[in-house]
Design a binder for these strands. Structure first.
Lengths: 254, 254
DNA sequence: CGGAGGGTTGATTCCCCTCAAAATCAGTGG
DNA sequence: CCACTGATTTTGAGGGGAATCAACCCTCCG
């Protein structure tokens, strides 16, 4: 497994939120920084699956930190099709850009029931001014998310359906591993084949066929909400997956 | 000082660099802010077409502000295919994220000969601390660029070839209009059909066919490096193009 | 028990890729 | 002035990957 273990000492009596786990992979956080981060998690709220958190065109939203459950951000086209831009997993921000732009260019929907903590811009900026290194870490995480969208673009633009699916599952697995929710063996995944289709620019029917192909090739199995990497090595080769930027062993910045 | 290089014509006023024009659409910049911005444009350099500025996997690069010419950022796949993630036009940053992440996850290539000014992280951060509103504006522009990549994702994921091309041309036109290089009538465009293909996830052959379709439908013509919107209205309808976030008349923040 | 949501599979269609070959054009050197 | 080269655009023919349409299955749940 990945060496996230050795940071656990730092936050001895602070709760390890998913966000703290994730940021800890980028920047070695001090006790103070941990507690500032922890103080952000005040206003806890829950949303139920399927009911939009943020709607395209809305303005003046709050931002949220996802504590548990999955969400997705998507855009609708006039003809009713939709494209899922990204999935959010625990430790991810929801609507951070929307807040800063005072306008949301996409909608966000909880896929499962989710727990979040609400964060206002002022809270966030104050936290940043207290601990600049925290700001760096958050910025870093945001950049990584952007890199993920770019990789997603390449998935859709230049990979065929099977490679696309393989790459997508690997990336998701790596992200989940970072917050302790997955490994090279696999991960729990609440996504329906319809959601996968909307994310990968495929039809749901074809998603099904592609999953069968991967299963029969002995590379990956997706059944009963569980993704299993039957052969992690062959899957990465097949998908041309480059895990370097996700394979952080320890923090980049000390 | 401010009187660098070729600020001659306008006399008392500072020259409007493409970046200043663009940021001016977001934030009404004061004289001071303008001059701080102008002071960033010190180290002027040129690069010739086709010779990579930044290479995938390289670390610790400089960032650049594009003054004239076009560039593109792209990623290569193992099988030799490439996907162009975004085109950069005057006023855009090159490699901003790469610098902050100390690692480039993509390459950048000048499409034409380009003029840039080199900017170090420290220069930039210092400028930001002097004029926070400038930081806001740059952040805003960066967010808009990200929104553009997302729109690009939707292009590729959910629009057919013709809609994709139409949407792409409209977006490019709107961006260029922001820095005074285009209008609803059209714009000058140095892109080859091969480049369009790599950007839109199509084959060059099909790009050609699609362009013909748009031309014969009387919506847009691309010939001799010139894009002409034959019917801007019908084109926007056809492409399901939403120009709100690009249709800024004046600055959002005063 | 009936209905809804999700998964699985088959048949058919079509959008776009691939291969191939001209046509056009800019530059280059004889 | 012309032959030669390479890059780019254009057009045609054929094939394949994914969409669409249409069943049928399952499980869950009121």
């Amino acid at each position: 497994m990945l060496g996230i273990g050795h940071h656990t000492k730092i936050g001895l009596h602070l709760e390890k939120t998913p966000l703290a786990l994730k940021l800890g992979a980028f920047v070695a956080l001090s006790r103070t920084e941990m507690s500032v981060l922890d103080a952000l998690h005040k206003r806890r709220r829950t949303f139920i699956a399927g009911c939009d958190l943020v709607r395209q065109g809305q303005s003046n939203q709050s931002a949220y930190i996802l504590m548990s459950g999955w969400a997705c951000s998507y855009k609708l086209l006039q003809d009713g099709q939709r494209q899922i831009v990204d999935f959010q997993i625990p430790g991810d921000f929801l609507g951070l850009r929307s807040v800063l732009l005072h306008m949301s260019d996409h909608s966000i929907e909880p896929i499962t029931d989710i727990e979040v903590t609400e964060v206002t811009v002022t809270d966030l900026l104050e936290a940043f001014s207290q601990t600049p290194r925290l700001a760096t870490a958050v910025f870093w995480a945001a950049s990584r998310d952007e890199a993920m969208v770019v990789e997603h673009l390449i998935d859709i633009g230049r990979r065929n359906a099977a490679e696309r699916m393989a790459h997508f599952l690997l990336e998701l697995g790596a992200r989940l591993a970072l917050v302790g929710l997955g490994s090279k063996a696999g991960f729990a995944c609440p996504l329906s084949q319809y959601l996968l289709a909307d994310a990968l620019g495929l039809s749901a029917v074809h998603v099904n066929r592609v999953l069968r192909t991967l299963r029969e090739a002995g590379m990956a199995t997706f059944r009963d909400g569980l993704v299993t990497f039957d052969s992690y090595r062959r899957l990465t080769e097949f998908a041309d997956f480059d895990p370097t930027y996700l394979d952080q062993i320890g923090p980049i910045l000390r």
